[in-house]
């Protein structure tokens, strides 16, 4: 059930992303996506293997759901966030959208816990998730700025 739910969500989000008139260039979407896979992957590995703050399920369907969650769903949501934030002009609207996405990512994380894809261990506090998502978004905005700088430089060359 969890794997099906995640796959359907990814399919819908990806379908709308492909159809949308995009602000981001292919290079930017790919760079942000891969940046999230790397940063979020390291963060999850540290939580799972080193700090043991997250327990992973050993059921095969849930294990594959966790791979899709880490490699597709979360990067896709963050890419959507960057896309929408860059499509609005005012700073306040950008801030509100970012805050909404942090809330959404936190909800998705706890939904994954509820679906038993993984389980947060006892000392885990929801505000830790909020902090982690905020930091991830800031890092990805920096990556987006970096790749935009490279594109501008290449086009001038």
């Amino acid at each position: 059930m969890a794997l099906t739910a995640i796959l359907i969500t990814c399919w819908i989000l990806l379908g709308f992303y492909v159809m949308k008139n995009k602000q981001l260039l292919l290079f930017e979407s790919m760079f942000c996506w891969m940046g999230v896979v790397l940063l979020f992957g390291d963060y999850m590995l540290i939580l799972i293997t080193n700090l043991r703050l997250i327990d992973m399920s050993m059921r095969l369907d849930l294990v594959w759901a966790s791979y899709v969650y880490r490699i597709v769903l979360i990067p896709l949501l963050v890419t959507w966030c960057i896309e929408l934030v860059y499509s609005v002009k005012s700073f306040q609207a950008k801030l509100i959208l970012s805050a909404l996405f942090i809330a959404l990512l936190t909800t998705v994380e706890f939904a994954a816990d509820w679906l038993q894809i993984f389980h947060h261990r006892a000392p885990w506090k929801p505000w830790w998730s909020v902090t982690a998502w905020s930091l991830l978004l800031i890092a990805v905005f920096c990556l987006k700025g970096f790749i935009r700088h490279l594109i501008k430089k290449d086009l001038r060359a």
């Binding site: 290079f27 891969m34 992957g41 490699i71 790749i147 430089k153 290449d154």
Partner: peptide
């Protein structure tokens, strides 16, 4: 171009890590 280099470098890392 720098942008292609950056994306391809990151892609190698992502594939290995995944």
């Amino acid at each position: 171009p720098a942008v292609i280099t950056a994306v391809m470098l990151l892609l190698s890392d992502v594939i290995a890590k995944a």
